[in-house]
Amino acid sequence: MSIQHFRVALIPFFAAFCLPVFAHPETLVKVKDAEDQLGARVGYIELDLNSGKILESFRPEERFPMMSTFKVLLCGAVLSRVDAGQEQLGRRIHYSQNDLVKYSPVTEKHLTDGMTVRELCSAAITMSDNTAANLLLTTIGGPKELTAFLHNMGDHVTRLDRWEPELNEAIPNDERDTTMPAAMATTLRKLLTGELLTLASRQQLIDWMEADKVAGPLLRSALPAGWFIADKSGASERGSRGIIAALGPDGKPSRIVVIYTTGSQATMDERNRQIAEIGASLIKHW
């Protein structure tokens, strides 16, 4: 058993032996400061991975655009179909130039040979490839079927209504393609630790998130040596930015963190910096 498999397999085991986890309101002070700095709403939640207890939250039940963070949920739905014998990670999917949409750094290189379902999930999560996400959405029946999958998990909040890139429109008060921090954190925890997916599929999902290559300026920039993080970021119109993550010290995840912001006029660099500073406060007061 690899170190990674050891880590995921023991998450339920550690729940019975973990020390009490204490919240630190200092992080919420930073979240509120980020709102002031960005001139935008910020949603935040910090969840204990083992118990599911909410440690801190700010606007946990307000809607925010999901942006590309939905791609983790999408690959969770794909893995659920794999577990049920309805899909194979090794199945190759062929597509054409007409299928390519904006920001497809991986799929645009494989027009001649296509990509496997496994490769598409990797591209969608680690590189946020939009065509990969659309191709995967097609395999499960489209955005409405992803919403149905989430409903069956008990998440009646999170919804996907459109495809890439239209889902990134982020119109104020538009509930399409949105979630709430509390709903996203709970759903992510179920995917990573619950019985919905097999152990192998849970491991695969967290491996893809751990290999994320496009979230460096966010929480990863504040991470001390030896800490673990598996994450997925997102960005969209109207100053929207977000990240969902499982992270913790000693090389294993122990908390879920979800951060969303929307409605800012700030630059992408400034949005990144504010999220990184929230992460730094979280780690300092861990």
Score class of each variant (00 low, 15 high):
D250T: 08
L135E: 04
Y260D: 01
R159Q: 07
I244P: 01
S240G: 14
I11V: 15
E61V: 11
K252M: 11
L160S: 09
K213S: 10
R7D: 10
A211C: 09
N152H: 12
L73R: 02
E195R: 13
I11E: 05
M115K: 02
A77G: 07
K109L: 13
V42M: 03
G43W: 01
L219D: 03
L167R: 02
G76A: 14
D212E: 05
L197Q: 03
L192W: 06
A40I: 06
L188R: 01
E270K: 10
I3H: 15
A15T: 03
H285W: 10
D33A: 15
I275V: 08
A77R: 08
A280N: 14
A230V: 03
Q88F: 13
E145C: 13
W227R: 01
L218N: 00
P20H: 09
K109R: 12
L74P: 02
R91Y: 04
A215H: 05
K109T: 14
A182C: 12
R59G: 01
R271L: 15
H151D: 12
G194S: 13
M127S: 09
M180L: 07
R59Q: 04
H285R: 08
N173F: 10
E164Q: 03
K190N: 13
I243A: 01
I171G: 14
V21G: 11
A9K: 14
D269F: 10
A182N: 10
T179P: 01
T107L: 07
S281Q: 15
S57E: 10
K252V: 13
A148R: 15
R241A: 02
P224D: 04
A225R: 13
V78C: 05
G85K: 11
D177R: 01
I3G: 09
T139L: 10
R271V: 12
E169T: 11
M66I: 09
A200Q: 15
R91K: 08
M180T: 15
M268G: 05
L100C: 07
L28R: 07
G239V: 03
L197A: 01
K53I: 12
A230S: 04
L197H: 04
G194Q: 11
R59P: 10
E62R: 04
E166V: 07
I93M: 14
Y260V: 04
N152I: 10
V29M: 10
A132V: 03
V78Y: 02
G194V: 05
G242Y: 00
R92D: 04
E145V: 10
I243D: 02
T186S: 15
A84D: 12
P60L: 07
A84G: 13
N98T: 14
K144R: 15
R273T: 11
E166Q: 10
A215P: 05
D161C: 02
H24P: 13
D231N: 04
V21Q: 03
A200S: 15
L219P: 02
L38R: 04
D161A: 03
E119D: 13
M115P: 02
E56L: 06
K144A: 14
D269R: 10
K252P: 03
D113A: 11
F228R: 05
S68I: 03
F6R: 10
L47R: 01
H94R: 13
S80Y: 13
L218F: 02
D83K: 01
I206K: 09
G43H: 00
A84V: 12
D269I: 11
G39S: 12
Q97H: 14
K190Q: 03
R238S: 14
W286C: 15
A276E: 08
H156N: 09
R159C: 01
P12D: 08
L19V: 15
T179E: 00
A23G: 14
P65E: 04
L47T: 07
Q204T: 13
Q274H: 12
E175I: 13
E56G: 09
A170R: 09
T198V: 07
F22E: 12
F149A: 07
P20S: 12
E119R: 04
H110L: 07
K284I: 09
E175T: 12
T112M: 12
Y103T: 05
G85C: 08
Q265T: 13
A170F: 13
W163C: 08
N272K: 00
A266I: 07
K213F: 08
A215L: 01
P181V: 05
V258I: 09
A276H: 11
L150V: 09
K53L: 11
S80D: 09
F17V: 12
A40R: 03
V257D: 03
D174K: 03
P249G: 03
L73A: 09
L74R: 02
I275N: 00
A15V: 15
A276S: 09
F228L: 05
A133E: 00
P65H: 08
K144M: 15
H24N: 09
D269L: 10
A182S: 13
R92A: 09
E119T: 05
P60H: 14
D129M: 00
V78A: 03
E35D: 04
E145G: 14
Q204E: 11
G85E: 09
A276D: 05
G52E: 05
P20F: 03
L55Y: 08
E61S: 13
T116G: 02
N134K: 03
L55R: 07
I93L: 14
I283Q: 05
A280E: 15
I140S: 01
T262K: 10
E62V: 07
M268L: 11
G43T: 02
G43I: 01
G251Q: 08
P181G: 00
S221V: 10
R92V: 14
T179Y: 00
T193L: 11
R159S: 04
L137P: 01
R81L: 08
V106S: 07
M127C: 10
V82Q: 04
A266E: 08
S221H: 10
I206E: 07
A9C: 14
